[in-house]
Write a protein that binds this DNA or RNA. Structure first.
Lengths: 212, 212, 212, 212
DNA sequence: GATGAATGAGGGTTCATTCAT
DNA sequence: AATGAATGAACCCTCATTCAT
């Protein structure tokens, strides 16, 4: 009733525009994406985009916020609620990523942020604070928990957090940058499972066995 | 110092221009970099750049080639010449990277390639083939060697190679994208030492001890 | 007068722009004509021209087509419909030219084509096929008709067609190239009447009298 | 001796440069011809051209003067010396043109003048006065002589002169503009012989027979 | 709200001309 | 005389943004 396909709710417009923007940005990068392309892909005219976003940069910012933050929050909630062996928590957390890295809504963004960092430092800063640091802090916390419980060797948690994170970044870059130009598709599940396996073994205290 | 202004200059110009281009590209990305900026930073006029490179893209390509290929070749040579415990070879190889990742001539490039992949697929393809695949192939080979000699668990070498590689990518992105906007400096030596330590432990066969 | 400034304008714009382009091209030639000049003379901004024509060459091509083809078609129609003494047909056909040669929309074009032939061979080829060859073919046909009916000497029609045509070319060149720099105005009517007179006498068979 | 092929007389340079300029201008038109092209075709460096000509326009002017004037003078000399039937004089004069129209040094120039008239009015004016008006004046004089001797009908000599001239212009345009893009080669000798034949018949007084 | 014609600043590229060697 | 590296003005074209309808 209140969603006739012919006369769409105007509330849906921003999201539609962001979806269109994501596709165009993903295909051409920020600089080469034309507002007209975005409008066309959303099925509206050029002027209409400006009714919802004051500028191309604003579209980009909205896109980044919308696509990433919910996932960070979901992860944080999972970690906060968890009780049990730390290794399992890490396994569970990493298990979320194959889906995310396959989701174009998500995987597209980091590449754009990296590419635009020079021109849009505020955006890069925002992304660093709200996504990267929060994500790393989350892993650090888990690692600290594991070290305190004697499950892991006591390595510097901030450093190890980055090492947990790095293969995810590689996966994102691989899929967005190298697969489109002929790179062999990444076997995400194997890849991340191996990652977790090596990391947990590598972190295990001298005597104990940790990886199940 | 010894600046015969004209004739001697000619030979040095391409390198000077590439250095200038690297700085400008690093600061603004490919699209936003203006040829005039590059020229000005090299101390010449706009037209002069075109005496040495036929287009902006050509500058970019020359930059990528010049900055990266020699390093890949150096690594390959090192691996080919090596005899001894495989773990030591990996340690030696990884020990080269702190210098590389600190070298602006090198660290700048991957970010540009990632940012421009949409617009310059050939460049991304070139980089994939000549840098990424060669680098991964190198590590794969080392891992295979290690597995054959019974030094490592027999995990899929192509997958593990990416896991060795991933922290380097993160280091590059960190330094180029997040440090400039307030990220805490990466402690490269610690970071890579920890990486090697965890990986070698994680790869060690069940009974044996490998990490020193 | 009735100048609804926007919406009604859109349909008129191409013609306005072509008129402006013709004036600028006529004054400076193709190469030296600046898009900005054309825009300014049409009372619009630079970018507007590109809403209607994708490039400077496209403006030129549209101009040539629009200015010339209708006249060729008109002549062909006249010849096809004609019955009566062939000499009269030639007189009638040539009587159309004073108007055409005085029309700046028409007379400007051949000079541009001649001047640009080196750089725009396709344009020259188009003009040759669609204007020159068709025009000459028309005259050839008429001459053949006259020869068959015994009204003319049987000279090679293709050759004689060019001789009928040549004074028109001279008239065009004279008006566009030499009058503006001090050449005495061409008395078009006299000039062409004399041309027809001499040609018809010159073509008349030995005994017969044909020219009135 | 004084013309070792290795060390050419510097006196030859201007002529060599003009020959090169003619070829380049002929191929691309004035605007699109690059000084570097001219230099390269003459086998010298860019700067050298400026030792002999102060600018691109100056090259063009020198070219026009050098290529055309001698021919006009030759024609005038022929006419001044002539005694005999006027028709024969015209025949002899026209017989010179097949050679001229085939000579690239000559045939190239008018097209350039026509194309550049807008931008170089002085050049067009020079050409009009020194070539066109002198040529037409020459023919006018001959026609007047013929009319006075009762050999021709008393038509306005200035008008008829243009009609004598027009086929030559067409021949020039044909060869330079349309032959290169697929026009059938002009049969110059036939073409001009027919021209002379028709004109002389057309000019002949009522009763008399003039054409041999 | 929606449109899309219009704007005009901006940047890549070319090339006539200069001048130190 | 000759070179050719260097200059910088000029111009085509793009596209983010505006605004009258």
């Amino acid at each position: 009733m209140r969603d006739t396909p012919i006369r769409r709710r105007k509330d849906a417009r921003p999201a539609e525009l962001l979806a269109a923007a994501r596709e165009v940005f993903a295909a051409k990068g920020f600089a080469a994406a034309r507002m007209e392309d975005i409008a066309a892909r959303a099925g509206v005219s050029k002027g209409t985009v400006y009714l919802y976003f004051p500028s191309k940069q604003a579209v980009f910012e909205a896109l980044v916020r919308q696509a990433i933050l919910p996932n960070v929050e979901r992860l944080e909630a999972m970690a906060a609620a968890y009780e049990g062996p730390t290794a399992d928590l890490l396994r569970q957390a990493m298990a979320l990523f194959p889906t995310l890295v396959r989701d174009p809504k998500v995987v597209t963004i980091p590449r754009l942020v990296i590419g635009e960092a020079g021109n849009q430092p505020e955006m890069a800063d925002f992304y660093r604070r709200e996504v990267v640091e929060r994500g790393l802090g989350l892993i650090s916390g888990i690692l600290r928990r594991g070290a305190e419980r004697g499950e892991f060797r006591p390595l510097a948690p901030d450093t190890v957090a980055k090492l947990w994170f790095a293969p995810l970044l590689l996966a994102v870059v691989w899929r967005t940058t190298f697969e489109p130009v002929g790179g062999a598709p990444l076997e995400l599940d194997d890849y991340l499972r191996t990652h977790v396996d090596i990391m947990l073994r590598g972190l295990a205290p001298e005597g104990g066995t940790d990886a199940a």
